[in-house]
């Protein structure tokens, strides 16, 4: 179908974009970034925004820079920016390159943005899982000022975030991984490029032959991605290997509250949670 009519704005500065957003947000005015989620929703008439504030021409939002121990990703940095692991970003660059190939398809990744994914907050978004697992920080700007939101407080449910309608997510800040950290990502879906039915992202270190500082995140299983403290507890202090990895998988399945859809019952996603966590851990160990 065809999108419904809207008024189009193309501001050139962040200030102008925020002023426009303050004005049109109360009438369901929205930001247009890559358009790879919003435009399909408009074509289905699931979304009928009255105004679109296109941020693609806003200067300065395409910054991708190291800032101390943090990778700062601006609102116009496209998924495709992470196709090749950037050595400057260390193990984080390799992690992002592993994850990005699971997001949609090449021509969608040349246009869609990491911040757009975080604003859209699909339960099966790979970047949302990444932000939660690594403990990212979101930097939201509005005409009233700027604030930082921790990932743990940011994701609130299916397509629900802490962002206010008049806020623009200008930047996401991803902490670099410590030297020697291992990471593993595993996603299950039926066709290449589809949204995940279930996925897991893990990082850990090995100190004196034992797992330390384990992070286990799951996505696509519940309404929003989250870290599983029980799985992390099952790993820390154990030797990396089959026994610990399977225990972490089982610990995850025991505590998740899976979403259900027409194709996939909750019980299936619960089993899948164990499998994706165990496999992500196995990948990290290679």
């Amino acid at each position: 179908m065809k999108p419904a009519a809207f008024v189009y704005h193309a501001p050139r500065t962040l200030e102008a974009a925020l002023a426009l957003l303050a004005e049109v947000a109360p009438q369901d005015g929205r930001i247009l970034a890559g358009g790879q989620s919003l435009v399909p929703a408009m074509a289905f008439r699931l979304a009928r925004p009255t105004h679109l504030v296109d941020i693609n021409g806003v200067a300065g939002l395409d910054r991708l820079v190291l800032d101390g121990g943090v990778l700062s990703v601006g609102a116009l940095v496209r998924h495709a920016a992470f196709h090749k692991a950037d050595a400057k970003f260390g193990a984080l660059g390799a992690l992002l390159a592993d994850v990005v190939h699971n997001i949609a398809h090449y021509p969608i990744r040349t246009r869609g943005t990491m911040c757009g994914s975080l604003a859209h907050a699909d339960p099966a978004s790979e970047w949302c899982l990444t932000a939660v697992t690594l403990g990212a920080e979101m930097v939201a700007h509005s005409a009233k000022g700027a604030r930082r939101i921790a990932a743990a407080d940011y994701f609130q449910g299916i397509m629900q975030t802490a962002l206010e309608p008049d806020e623009l997510l200008a930047e996401v800040r991803l902490p670099l991984l410590p030297e020697g950290a291992k990471h593993g990502f595993y996603e299950f879906n039926r066709r290449a490029g589809d949204f995940a039915i279930g996925m897991a992202l893990v990082t850990y270190q090995v100190k004196g032959g034992k797992i330390a500082e384990a992070r286990v995140g799951i996505g696509g299983i519940e309404g929003a991605p989250r870290r599983i403290a029980e799985a992390e507890a099952a790993l820390n202090g154990q030797a990396p290997g089959k026994a610990a990895f399977e225990a972490a998988g089982q610990a995850t399945a025991a505590v998740v509250d899976p979403i259900e859809d027409a194709q996939t019952p909750a019980a299936y996603r619960r089993d899948l949670a164990a499998t994706v966590v165990t496999r992500a851990l196995e990948r990290a160990a290679i």
């Binding site: 435009v39 399909p40 074509a43 495709a80 090449y106 021509p107 040349t110 246009r111």
Partner: peptide, 18 residues
Amino acid sequence: TVIIDGEPMRSCLMFAVQ
């Protein structure tokens, strides 16, 4: 799919004004 400034893109997911 068309090529815009060297990048392949879905032309149904972009507005002509863009």
